[in-house]
């Protein structure tokens, strides 16, 4: 994938692969792997919200954890502001300050023995910021995320509701004044009425602090609301990447179309009459050869079971990994190869 944008992306991901060993034989040698992420390329541009969607197990969280260097990639490179993460030019500690993460399970990601204030000042103090500065910042952030510091600073996580815990998590992530927030299903555990409050907060904070978001969610409506561009994953690979409205109104990849076709109408006179695709997603321990979607794809032809389609530009900003859109692939619907 070529970089079409003149300005260098804030975060550049190339050929990212993560295989988790899952089975060992009697000699302790690994005999099979989960290909959780299998050759993922994308750019995260300064100031944008890049949405990531796909069904459970398709590799969204693994991608996020790889981005933050919480786990080691099997292969691939990640560059931040043009510098390789983990190099002398950009030590891991400095990178971690700039890129922070908010998880779905806000309960598990907060230390139950720390008060709200203590969990927010912890990160900045590790990075050498004086306690009183960190405290002042924590109070300002609590105020900003809608939690009155007088009432909430001294509370423990089990004394908070889900929405309140998620606000604390956001405050904690912002305490290091990062440039990027990776939000992994950050609102998925919240009720709709509370989810809307947190989404509004994220929008406001983004403008105020000039943040860049990688917004992971299985909820297509929420991603449509939040994202400028959307990346669709299927079984560890990128299926499609496009500006949000292009994707939602003109998806090209059969999997994206099936995913969007599964959205419920909210209209009693337009109920779903047929499921767009049948069956469950296959097991990533032994993924289908060729295009990983071919076992469920209505447009699949012989070529789809043979070679994996690469991510190719369908139009300037719209990328698709499907043989139907790859000139000369051998798929009956593919355009002829340009001379």
């Amino acid at each position: 994938m070529k970089d079409e944008n003149a300005s260098a992306p804030l975060l550049q991901v190339r050929g990212l692969v993560k295989h988790f060993p899952v089975k060992k034989n009697l000699l302790g040698r690994t005999t099979s792997f989960v290909s959780a992420v299998d050759g993922v390329d994308f750019d995260l541009r300064q100031g944008e919200t890049l949405g990531v969607v796909g069904e459970s197990g398709c590799g969204k969280s693994t991608t996020a954890r790889l981005l933050l260097h919480l786990i080691e990639p099997t292969a691939g490179t990640i560059r931040f502001g043009g510098r390789t993460v983990g190099s002398v030019a950009l030590p891991l500690k400095e990178f971690r300050r700039q890129v922070q993460m908010v998880f779905q399970d806000s309960y598990a990601s907060l230390n139950p023995r720390l008060t709200v204030e203590e969990s927010i000042v912890f990160g900045p103090m590790v990075h050498g910021i004086a306690r009183h500065v960190a405290q002042a910042r924590a109070h300002a952030l609590l105020e900003r995320v809608g939690l009155d510091p007088v009432r909430f600073a001294g509370r423990f996580t089990h004394e908070l509701s889900g929405g309140q815990r998620q606000r604390v998590n956001i405050a904690r992530a912002l305490a290091l004044q990062p440039r990027v927030l990776v939000l992994d299903e950050a609102v998925s555990a919240l009720d709709k009425s509370v989810e809307a409050q947190v989404l509004n907060l994220l929008l406001d904070l983004k403008g105020e602090f000039g943040l860049t978001y990688l917004f992971i969610s299985h909820d297509l409506e929420v991603v449509r609301f939040m994202a400028d561009r959307v990346l669709v994953m299927y079984l560890g690979r990128v299926a499609e990447l496009a500006p949000t409205e292009d994707l939602y109104t003109g998806s090209r990849h059969p999997y994206t179309s099936a995913l969007l076709g599964s959205l419920l109408s909210m209209d009693p006179d337009r109920r779903t009459v047929a499921a767009p695709i049948s069956g469950d997603p296959p097991n990533p321990i032994d993924p289908p050869a060729g295009c990983r979607f071919h076992t469920r794809c209505a447009s699949a032809q012989a070529v789809c079971a043979k070679g994996a389609p690469g991510l190719a530009a369908h139009s300037r900003e719209h990328w698709v990994a499907c043989h139907m859109f790859d000139a000369g692939s051998g798929h009956g619907s593919a355009p002829a190869k340009a001379a």
């Binding site: 929405g163 009720d191 009425s193 989810e195 809307a196 409050q197 509004n200 929420v222 609301f225 409205e245």
Partner: peptide, 25 residues
Amino acid sequence: IGLLSTRAQGGRLSGKRLPTITGSP
């Protein structure tokens, strides 16, 4: 009424603030 209006549905609300129900149950 609040629940129905607070949903991020369709592209129409994209990027604008959502109507919310304040507080929690």
